[in-house]
Design a protein around this nucleic acid. Structure first.
Lengths: 342, 342
DNA sequence: GGATTTTTGAGGTGCGTACCTCATTTTGAG
DNA sequence: CTCAAAATGAGGTACGCACCTCAAAAATCC
């Protein structure tokens, strides 16, 4: 009738509770034949361990670290807010999270932070940082020490991380490209692409996706060389203003990453904003407001709530050694217009 | 250090465990002053009840019914699949769900189903059915009997349901309108709107949203009177074919509800499909495929996984009498293009 | 067949909470 | 002040599971 328990398994398999316990928790001292009998009972009864009761008994605390860029990035701000929210909501039971701020653009800072995380104090780490050889090695050390590691927002594919929680940058770039092409319409013109740094893997991939779609479907649009702001708002404003002035036939702007505030300021100052199709990434207070004001036409984003909840679920699953529920952990590429603002 | 327990509260408030228990579970026999003391301790320690331990002790089972339209609607199919998935994944602990199929277009069938749900067998109900006076009364009876009721996908605003899990139809219609207008571009022409029935509240609201955007921003487009299929695939094919033939200057089609398969078939047969902007609702195998084949330009949808998980969470929260976490329960209006297909 | 090792059983404890019973103390009314 | 009623305390049991110990049974070896 109701959920089978360990007692039911013991009865079904004709063994004692202690033996069931040994099998379920992979403790030694059980004959292969008996293990089979118990597993058979588990299968036939459809037993699933009550993880909450288990954790209650085990009085485990999942200790996770979130390595996040410090500074005044609005996206990271919303991410942190979502993290606190997820913890406050009882969602994340028995989970204690420590946020470890790093200077993301400085690999040494990241490595120092990662090396400070020992298995004595943490069971898992979520890392949002650009991929560098040093970071890759540090992740390998963490894995060696027995920690679970997930990459957050930006993937660390060669690092041996357990999982990546985030969206596919190529698809995100393609999505931005299609929206740009269709929103601009038939008129020819130039497209400006702005980013923080074209060295980051996700910038490269977004650009690749964007370019591919443009070449396939919108040949009437010319893409200008990327403009890099290098984390400097003043520089962003200057180069954008210059580009706007230099290209009277500009029809669209694609902002691939952070720095939307100075970008919009420069475009406003240029007096060209209303005539341009602007596509930006990440829904933050700035882009939210810009959507409402019709300054930005579309925002490609990922739900930060999903990001952190997925990261927490995956870390827990990895610690428990249970499989993850792939369909739930796929982060979607959200398209936000003024009309479907959350 | 770690999470405070009832023991900590008892100590802090200077009362016994029994008294804490009486206060926390609203049992009688405690002086107002003492209740205050305990609540004060709860607040100062930041105690939150461990709901899993609580349910373990209480050995409650949450018994929920999902009243869903029967028939071969693809959307309902994906919804059921998501429901089974959510139950299979240990997400829905201690929750047993029974799916109650009804003939959604027949109010009597719905009412009969609702009346069959007694408080002896169920703690809550999620209902996906059109709003009618009979349904409203049946919901009132359920509420009276002490069941929690949430409306699913289609709201029952006047019924006294506890919560609505779904998207705002007006916004969904506006979103479709903007995409239609911008994708069509500058060329003038006619827009065809197809739906199951213009009597359903959500059809009406989607249409209102769509029309409003069109009138505001895309005056060059003319909207034809809605075509209703009345759940009849053959009728759908016929009326769509006729409309396609009658309007050579058709530039777009907005499908507001079910029936995408016969709609697309008719459009294919008319030979006009490739030249039209087609916007449809709900991501199903049919619309998924149509996106991949460039037959449909955009799909407005809601994540069925979110829908069912949200419904389950809300029902649980209502049964527990705890507040719901609004931000997490807001279902987003997803825009799906070929490029950001999940 | 006897000694040794391996496997199994029986039972207890605790996790945080609910719910119960039975004293004991405190309070308020007369 | 007395006495009944109300409020509180002390303690137990259970939920499903993990983890522990010690004894008993079974298998294995020589």
């Amino acid at each position: 009738m109701s959920k089978p328990t360990v007692h039911d398994i013991a009865r079904q398999a004709g063994v004692s509770l202690a033996t069931v316990d040994r099998v379920l928790n992979a403790r030694p001292g059980v004959r292969e034949k008996t293990i089979e009998r118990v597993n058979e009972a588990v299968r036939s009864l459809g037993y699933v361990r009550d993880t909450y009761a288990a954790n209650l008994a085990r009085k485990t605390q999942y200790r996770f670290a979130f390595v996040l860029p410090e500074g005044d990035s609005q996206f990271v701000g919303t991410l942190k807010a979502a993290l606190h929210e997820a913890m406050a909501a009882q969602l994340a039971d028995r989970v204690i999270v420590r946020i470890v701020p790093v200077q993301a653009q400085d690999p040494h800072s990241v490595v120092r932070a990662l090396n400070s995380l020992s298995a004595d104090h943490f069971d898992g780490v979520a890392i949002m940082a650009p991929e560098t050889p040093q970071v890759r090695d540090a992740v390998a050390r963490l894995k060696q020490a027995g920690l679970s590691v997930v990459a957050l927002v930006a993937d660390l594919p060669t690092s041996g991380r357990d999982h990546f929680v985030g969206i596919n940058s190529l698809s995100a770039g393609r999505t931005a490209g299609v929206l740009m092409g269709r929103f601009v319409g038939a008129r020819p013109g130039k497209i400006l692409i702005v980013t923080n740094s074209m060295l980051a893997r996700d910038s490269i991939e977004r650009r690749l996706g964007f370019d591919a779609v443009m070449a396939e479907s919108f040949p009437q649009l010319t893409i200008l060389p990327s403009i890099e702001s290098r984390d400097d708002p003043a520089r962003m404003e200057m180069v954008v203003a210059r580009a706007a002035a230099a290209h009277p036939d500009l029809v669209g702007v694609y902002s691939m990453g952070p720095g939307n505030r100075p970008l919009l300021q420069a475009l406003r100052a240029s007096g060209r904003l209303k005539g341009l199709v602007v596509i930006a990434h990440e829904l933050t207070p700035v882009t939210h407001r810009a959507l409402l004001e019709d300054e930005v036409d579309a925002v490609i984003t990922q739900n930060v709530g999903h990001l952190v909840r997925s990261a927490l679920r995956v870390l827990r699953a990895k610690c428990d050694g249970v499989p993850i529920f792939e369909a739930q952990e796929r982060i979607r590429i959200d398209i936000v217009l003024k009309e479907n603002l959350p």
